[in-house]
Each structure stands twice: as C-alpha cells, then as structure tokens.
Simulated assay, not measured.
Amino acid sequence: MDDSTAGSNGARQRRQARRAGRPVGHVLGIPIFVNGSMVLLAALVTLVYGNYVRGRLDLPGPLAYVVGFGFVVCLLGSVLLHELGHALTARRFRIGIRGITLELLGGWTEMDRDAPTPRVDALVSLAGPAVSLVLGGLATAAFVALPDRTMAGQIAFQLAASNILVAIFNVLPGLPLDGGRALRAGLWAIFKDRNRATELAGWAGRLIAFGTGMTAFWFYRLGTITLLGLLFVLLVVFTLWQGAGQSIRLARMTRRFPLVDLNQLARPLLTVPAGTPLGEAQRRRSEDPRPGVVLAVSDSAGNLTALVDPVAAERVPVDRRPWVAVDSVARSRDAVPALPLGLSGEQVVRALQAHPAAQYVVTSGEDVVGVLRVGDVAQVLEPRRPERPVKQKEK
C-alpha cells in the first residue's frame, strides 16, 4: 500500500514520527529509508514463501528459504519502483522529493509541497499504480515463457500476482490509497476546494476499509482465506482506517488556518525583575486583569531577557516558591523562537512545524508584544481537542 505525502497540510508534523527508517542509499539522487517494520515483514514472507515453495517444488529447507528471500528482494524492488513512479512524476512538475521510505505495508514518498493543480495531483497519484501494472505485465510474460514448476517460474508468478493486486487495490477511490488521491484531484477540480475534496476522499477511504474488512470476514467463513490471511487483511484495514482518519483530520485543520491570527492569539506579558521570588511573580500575575498573562523576566534596564517556563514553574513545590528565584524556571529570550506579526495563519503553522517549541515570542520590529503558546494554536485548529491540565492552570 502506498501513502505519498506532501510537505504542507500537516505532513511536516508527521515527518519526525514517521521517519523511523534507516538510510540505505540513494536512487537517482533520492534518499531511500527502510523502516524496521519492513525487516519484520521480510522475515515473515521469507518463512511463509519458503515453506510454500518447499512443498510445491520439493526443495530442501535451506534452498527453499533462499528462494523465499529472493522473492522478498524482488518484492522490495517492486515497491521501490512503485514509489519511484510517484517521485519521478512529481519531479517532472518541479515538486521536490525529500525521500522514499519502505515500511511494513509498502512505502511512501515524501514531497516538499502539495501538487499545484488537480491535474498534477492525479498524474502523480496514478504513476505508482501504473508502474506496478507494468511490472505485473512483465512478470506475467516471464511466467508464461518459463517452464512450469521451476523456482524462476514460481517467483515470476508471485511477482505478477502481487504487482497486479497492488495496482488494482491502490487505485480504489479512497485515501490514503493512490486512487483516493486521484479521487481528491477530481473533487478538487469540481468543488475548487482542496480541503473539502480531501475530507470527502478520506470518508471514501473509511468506507473502503470497512468494506474490505467485511469481505475478509466473509471469505474467512467460506474457508477461502486462512486465519493468518484474515489477520493480515485486518492489519491492512486498520492502516487504511487510520490513514483515512488522518486525512480527514488534516483537511479540517487546514481549513481553519485563516483563524490562526497572531494578534488574537498572542498572550500579554507581565515582566518582573530578575531575582523576583517565583511565588511573588505568580501573585502579581494572579492579580493582573488581563487573561492568559505570561510571566517574563527583565534585566535592570527593563529589557526582556527570559520567559518563565510554565511546566518548570508548576513543578516547584508551593512552599518553596517564595525562596526560588523566577530566573531559575525561565528560558532565555534568545532561545525562544520568534514570530513576527503579520504572518498569515498558514505561515504561522509552517513556522511551528519547522521550529517545534512550547511557546514563541511574538515581535513587532524589535519589540516583543506577546507570547504564542503552541497549545493555543492547537485549540484553534482542533477546537474539540481537550486541553492539557498544565495549560489549564496557566490560564
């Protein structure tokens, strides 16, 4: 299964979590990564396919598992070529490629931006299944040409079947499948709204996941597939459901980008001199009538030098706060990322993704006019998301 992603609309937010693979080299200048889950799948396929060819071709155990490993190598090559189909097509339209990662159920191509038009989105999406279909056709021709009941013939048959199945399954019209991205492109062209198209294609993906799961249970009851096969299909279904849900969530978040307004979200500052006891600083803040005030530290000239870390401040026992200087739970102003007033909502979100932090100083020229908490942005983008207790205490 493929899950090509672009750099905007939330992809950067996922990148560090998803990029758990090890770099294994470059193909045509594109970095290739292999996830640990792919190693697990390779071992499982080697074992299962080795047992299959040992019984079908009457091979000794060690040789059968060598054949099984050879099939895995060919399968990985097919997945890589599928992803290169996406990557090279994206390159043709001047979309940068950050890398290709091979993982448990296939792979994904990371692009540095979204397709600029529905047409480009559709072409990039369908390039991968087209490569798989061509590989399936070549493997079918090889199977027909090779003698029956031979190792090469069996590998050609399995590669033909797997590539054709991958091509057919991937063009099903629901995210995160390639066909779902093509559906999104069509809906985008119709509604002129990429986010609405993404959300609808995500719901289509959930319908496909549900239907696939029900079909798998039906085949299992008929005895067509084994319990192991059912479990594998359910793993695919779970992955599809999660990917579709993430697409829906990201579309809803992206639609709310214009609501991210630094003028509205920046919390006011209450500055106290360096050396002020934490308890006294918190007392002053509690008496400040402005909502959501953030404590800051200034030097003798009145210049802002640090911001109080709310988490570190909460960790100080209440009875110790009169004796702990506010400086000890503050972070240097220079270590806090800055966001200038005037950024659009999308620019703010991109900046937060590029420089993750708990809080940011909001500036107007040389002056610091407030502090942006990343939790406040999350509340705008996902208003139904529950707030964390620490943030509640700081309000």
Rank of each mutant, 00 (worst) to 15 (best):
A338C: 03
M214I: 12
D376I: 04
W241C: 08
I248T: 07
G365L: 06
G279I: 03
E394T: 13
D376L: 09
D319Q: 11
D309I: 07
S162V: 15
R56D: 10
V134Y: 00
R249G: 02
A185H: 03
I32M: 10
R54Y: 04
R320Y: 06
R252P: 04
V45H: 02
S37C: 00
I100L: 04
A87S: 14
G77I: 09
A354C: 04
A306R: 06
F257D: 01
V39Y: 01
I225Y: 14
R184S: 08
M214D: 01
G211Y: 01
G186C: 03
P273H: 10
K192Q: 13
A330C: 10
R221T: 15
R184G: 06
R388S: 12
G106Q: 04
G96H: 05
R285S: 13
V316A: 06
V260M: 01
W203S: 05
I248C: 06
A266P: 12
L222I: 06
T109D: 09
V368G: 01
A142N: 03
G370A: 06
A115G: 03
V326W: 09
G85S: 00
L352R: 03
R194L: 11
R184Q: 12
L270S: 09
T89N: 01
M214W: 13
A185E: 07
A296M: 05
L40M: 08
S8D: 11
W218M: 12
L295I: 09
G136E: 05
V233W: 04
L235H: 01
R119H: 03
L146V: 01
I97T: 14
E280S: 12
L105G: 03
E287A: 15
D319M: 10
A244W: 00
G29A: 05
E382Y: 02
S344T: 14
P23K: 14
K393H: 12
E199S: 11
V308E: 06
H82T: 07
D376N: 09
T212S: 13
W203C: 07
L59H: 08
I168W: 09
L138E: 07
L278G: 06
L105C: 05
G370V: 04
C74W: 02
P268T: 15
E346L: 05
A11Y: 14
R194S: 10
V349Q: 05
V336C: 00
R283Q: 14
I248E: 13
D3Y: 14
T109C: 13
V24R: 11
V380S: 06
A145H: 04
W218H: 15
L307E: 08
A182L: 03
L187A: 06
R255D: 14
G29F: 05
